[in-house]
Design a protein around this nucleic acid. Structure first.
Lengths: 241, 241
DNA sequence: CGTCGGATTGAATGCTGTCAATTCCGGTGG
DNA sequence: CCACCGGAATTGACAGCATTCAATCCGACG
């Protein structure tokens, strides 16, 4: 795969928007300088594959902007999304050369990359980096396990509601609010992508959205915009733990 | 909850059976001595709850012997197992006081414990410990994501076969072999526990085991012992990725 | 021998998937 | 500006798989 390294990739970490949330958060200034010298950026357009499951992956990265999806699939084509990488999230695995899942850019996306062997070296020398990565990995593990509950036990309607709750919480967090009523949610994905996340078919997704609309739990403005009259009602539909 | 600390818990780490695989693996001798001085053991009988989801958890631990199950549940009682802790696995989360899932001893079990604040201290000072924990956490994340594929996309029959493949691989690994034919698998759990892992009902588990038996993919010796005439055939049934 | 929990089996319901037809919407070109 | 196109989404009919509810079986243990 051609490395589309951006020219002048040495943008300063000082001004990096994801610093407070990324792996590099918490690293002291002298270590940040080292990171700054080794990083390089790569950009992807929506729909582009970053790595295929089973392929070699010689770098690790932080998502600077955009969204990436982690998916795993069976030989016959059945697909399950197993993770979402949002701004600041970490991609790749120190100590493993082969990617265990396919990574696709869901939107246009920019990554801040490090060559894997170099990054592994850094981990042994920079405890702050290792600890931040551990913390992030533990968070992802919790998210994955919550999703297991959804996939294993929730009905189609509950899965849709759960996803909407998740998205609503995120939109609210963006503007520093806790979710209240009349939230507008932008669905950042097609029905098929939603289905692949929830372990459903796209037809079922469509039907359950229609059902939630009919029951006045949500209002649909066009295909991709949802407004929620009562957040509490939506949470009730999601069968929260 | 009463701490049932074993008297004379200061068993030597030298002779500890899980040393090669646990968090402490890779720590240099001088650091092991520190760990040895701080550890204490706790034992649980099969079925006993170690912590409830939402409860405070003031320690972290390695499983010395036995099996523990991590589960999450909905208000109405639906339950999904989200992890299995086997010999050597790590329990608890540095930096988080509240347990996100319920932990139950599936068999009689012994833990090698550390008080959480002390352990967090150690992590910052012992890079080998932090790196081993990171590695183990990344492994668990991969396992969780594989399971998401199973829960989201596989049929009941495929889920059962997948579980048997997993157990067969583990039994074989124990004796240092790769799985071949005529493997004997011991099911370490009830039908209900299997169902909770696979996101099924216990009736479906029972039916699919019967179906696999009828199709001569497996042989049932009593309720809890399965032998596999052809491992390849079993793998084919599991819809491997 | 009786009991109790776990496991199996049966019948019926219902949710979700499958297949297929149709509609909606955004973009493109005449 | 409008007609057309193609992909996304919706809707309908039907089939099938897993769940639900219920009855029975099995095996360990007193």
């Amino acid at each position: 795969m051609a490395l589309n390294v951006a020219p002048h990739s040495q943008q300063a970490c000082d001004t990096c928007p994801i610093r407070p949330h990324a792996v590099c958060a918490g690293s002291p200034p002298d270590q940040l300088v080292v990171l700054e010298g080794l990083k390089f950026r790569r950009s992807f357009t929506a729909g582009q594959v970053v790595v295929w499951a089973g392929e070699e992956m010689d770098f690790v990265a932080s998502v600077v902007s955009g969204v990436a999806e982690l998916g795993r699939e069976l030989e016959d084509g059945r697909r399950q999304m197993v993770g979402l990488l949002l701004t600041g999230d970490f991609l790749g695995r120190p100590g493993r050369a082969i990617a265990p899942y396919t990574v696709v850019a869901a939107t246009d996306m920019t990554l801040c990359c490090f060559r894997r062997p170099q990054f592994e070296q850094l981990l042994t020398k920079m405890p702050a980096l290792a600890n931040r990565l551990l913390e992030m990995t533990l968070d992802e593990l919790d998210v994955a396990r919550d999703w297991m509950l959804l996939l294993g036990r929730k009905s189609a309607r509950e899965r849709i509601a759960s996803l909407l709750v998740l998205l609503a919480r995120r939109e609210s967090a963006m503007i520093g609010q806790i979710p209240t009523d009349r939230i507008a949610i932008e669905l950042p994905m097609t029905r098929e992508a939603i289905a692949d996340h929830l372990g459903l078919t796209l037809e079922t997704v469509s039907r359950q959205l229609a059902a939630l609309k009919a029951d006045k739990v949500i209002v649909l403005d066009g295909k991709r915009r949802v407004t929620v009259p009562s957040f509490a009602a939506l949470v009730a539909e999601s069968a929260a733990a």
